[in-house]
Write a protein that binds this DNA or RNA. Structure first.
Lengths: 214, 214
DNA sequence: GTAATCTTTGACCAGTTGGTAAATTTTTGA
DNA sequence: TCAAAAATTTACCAACTGGTCAAAGATTAC
């Protein structure tokens, strides 16, 4: 007999079997595909099951609800999402710290566009399922905003509002993942993804060096 | 007897009655609310009907399908959406042309956030319903990119990729509408919307003046 | 080998969804 | 005023939705 109580508790404490680990990974991969392009409400369990090549009841054996899949994806996402901001070093050179922050964010947008869109969908729809996590994000932003303010006070950076500086970096970098459909039409299919991100990196580098030099 | 064929053809050629004009406006207003927060697939006709204070069949008397409402919203949107870019004047002063373009885009984000989110939702989901319209957008971008390139050749603007310049302006300005839920958490509820957009305007002004001056 | 456990499936269900049909009520124009 | 047109409502439907259940099939540990 099935034991959904333990098996489907993906983040459970009981040790998971090999099959559990494999199937859960397959399911999350499929769920990421579907959630990131249709949003939570627009996605259906059947779609995810199709993508995963599993039956619907089989999916629900590993994750008790659609929301459980969504939640686990978001939880996994947020950690890696905040890491680049975390890595900003108060001891480093301000301009190059910000440059490499932009570089790391661009890499994330290039290598994990689905994750970016999953997050964008959630925020766009009012962030109903990640209010708590956003508080964590706010605290991290506050911490880094203070570092930036100190840099400004020390005359190492042009005077500016650090919050809006961070917002602008988020938006310009994530734009290439979230609005990929638009970017592709404007630049033409011919432009390869790799070139596109290199061009973007050059442009943003120049923009922020010019705009932030004291 | 009802004549859905003509009445529900919202953009029809037959002259519309007073009631038709009023109700269609009410419905589109409600549809904008719902579509912009849930996306096309996530929105239901019942929700829109509730928002509009009408019965579901009554809604479908004015718009034959859910898709018809969505399409009309997008059609109306795109014109006003492209206007700020249209207004960039090749004869004007480059830096101040770009400054006022940013200003106009920020105003749109402030005054029409739902429209911005409707558009964002559509692009995020791969722009399945507005591929044709995006081609129009591409041509306009190409035209303005040429103007910017000329400015650069004349030494009036720092050398940069005009496409990515436009992308960065789109993303930084629309961010305040599309990611409002996140911005509000980070800045705190206390910060009034008006102040927020003024701060953003100041920051972006500085960033682009510094980054684009030749 | 075999019993206990884990995995998968097919049949099913109640609620929701987009949309329809016909009858009724309201508005309009002569 | 009154009939034609327009607007609204009630009742309805088939397809889809998230999710359940019990039974059958596959693995595992001894």
């Amino acid at each position: 007999m099935a034991q959904p109580k333990s098996a489907s508790r993906a983040a459970g404490t009981r040790k998971r079997t090999r099959i559990q680990r494999e199937k859960e990974e397959i399911i999350l991969e499929a769920a990421l595909d579907v959630f990131s392009t249709h949003g939570f409400r627009g996605a259906t369990i059947d779609q995810i099951a199709d993508h995963a090549g599993l039956s619907k009841p089989n999916l629900l054996y590993y994750f008790r609800t659609k929301e459980a899949m969504h939640r686990q994806l978001l939880d996994q996402l947020l950690e890696s999402w905040l890491r680049p901001l975390h890595e900003i070093d108060a001891q480093g050179d301000p301009i190059s710290e910000i440059q490499s922050y932009i570089g790391r964010k661009l890499e994330l947008a290039r290598d994990f566009p689905r994750e970016s869109r999953l997050f964008a969908n959630e925020i766009l729809q009012g962030a109903p399922r990640i209010q708590e996590e956003l508080v964590e994000l706010r605290d991290l932003v506050e911490e880094k905003a203070q570092i930036i303010l100190n840099w400004i006070r020390q005359g190492k950076l042009a005077k500016c509002d650090p919050h809006h500086l961070i917002f602008s970096i988020w938006s310009t970098t994530q734009h290439y993942a979230d609005f990929d459909a638009q970017v592709t039409v404007v630049l033409g299919d011919a432009k390869k993804t790799k070139d596109r991100f290199e061009d973007a990196g050059r442009f943003l580098s120049q923009l922020y060096i010019g705009g932030l030099k004291p």
